[in-house]
Simulated scan of single mutants.
Amino acid sequence: MVAKGGSAHAPGRARGGPGTNIHALSDNRERPIAFHLTGANVSDFTEAEALLPLAPANGVLHGDKGYVSGRIHRIVEERGSLRNIPPRKTHNWKNCFLPYPYQSRAVIGRMLGRLKEFRRIATCHDRNARNFLWSLCLAATVCYWL
């Protein structure tokens, strides 16, 4: 399992107050492959590039609307993978999107939900990104790899 943290203090300021985004990559069996932490005020698609090299090649990459970017689309296609990301409502051009396979994107939600059963992960008590990332990796190890 690979873990990458942003700055030393990951919590950023968003509309709701301080928060941390957990960007995760998992396989199709809900097992985490990699984590990346950012502040809540950082855009999703700018940080997705940190996880894309760790994604398996020649597969299908599912993502939510926050990961719509021409740069991400090019990186995924260069790796020989397919992308299945729904278009934003504001986009005039609608990429080809298949809703039925997109349901498998729920594995990320289930994985994060299972990790957030640990109170330390759900409430994000740690102010230091390194400590929070360590707690996240420990919870993932206990849930999925032991």
Rank of each mutant, 00 (worst) to 15 (best):
R13W: 14
R13Q: 15
R13P: 08
R13G: 08
A14Q: 12
G16C: 11
G16H: 15
G16Y: 11
P18E: 13
P18S: 11
N21E: 05
A24E: 08
D27Q: 01
R29A: 09
R31T: 01
P32E: 03
A34D: 02
A34H: 00
A34M: 04
F35G: 00
T38N: 06
T38L: 06
A40R: 15
F45V: 14
E47H: 11
E47R: 15
A48T: 09
E49K: 14
L51Q: 02
L54H: 05
A55W: 08
A55M: 14
A55H: 07
P56T: 09
A57T: 13
A57M: 13
N58H: 12
G59V: 14
V60H: 08
V60E: 05
H62A: 08
H62F: 11
G63N: 03
G63R: 01
G63D: 03
D64Q: 13
D64T: 10
V68N: 08
S69I: 06
S69H: 02
S69F: 01
G70K: 15
G70T: 05
G70H: 10
G70Y: 07
R71G: 06
R71C: 05
R71Y: 00
I72A: 01
H73D: 12
H73G: 07
H73P: 02
R74K: 15
I75S: 04
I75H: 04
E77M: 11
E78Y: 05
E78A: 09
R79E: 06
R79C: 07
R79S: 09
G80I: 00
G80A: 00
S81T: 01
S81C: 06
L82D: 05
R83S: 07
R83C: 04
P87Q: 05
P87T: 00
R88A: 07
R88C: 08
R88E: 10
K89N: 09
K89T: 09
T90A: 10
H91N: 12
H91A: 11
W93A: 10
K94S: 06
K94G: 02
N95L: 14
C96V: 14
C96F: 12
Y100A: 14
Y100S: 12
Y102P: 02
Y102L: 04
Q103C: 10
Q103S: 10
R105I: 05
R105Y: 08
V107Q: 14
I108K: 02
I108S: 02
G109P: 05
R110P: 04
R110G: 02
G113Q: 04
G113H: 04
G113T: 03
G113N: 08
R114P: 01
L115C: 01
K116T: 02
E117H: 14
F118Y: 13
F118L: 07
I121G: 00
A122N: 03
A122I: 04
A122F: 05
T123V: 13
T123K: 14
C124H: 14
C124W: 12
H125V: 13
D126C: 11
D126L: 06
D126Y: 13
R127V: 14
N128F: 11
N128P: 03
N128E: 09
A129G: 01
N131R: 15
F132P: 05
L133Q: 03
L136D: 02
C137T: 13
C137G: 02
L138P: 04
A139P: 02
A140Q: 00
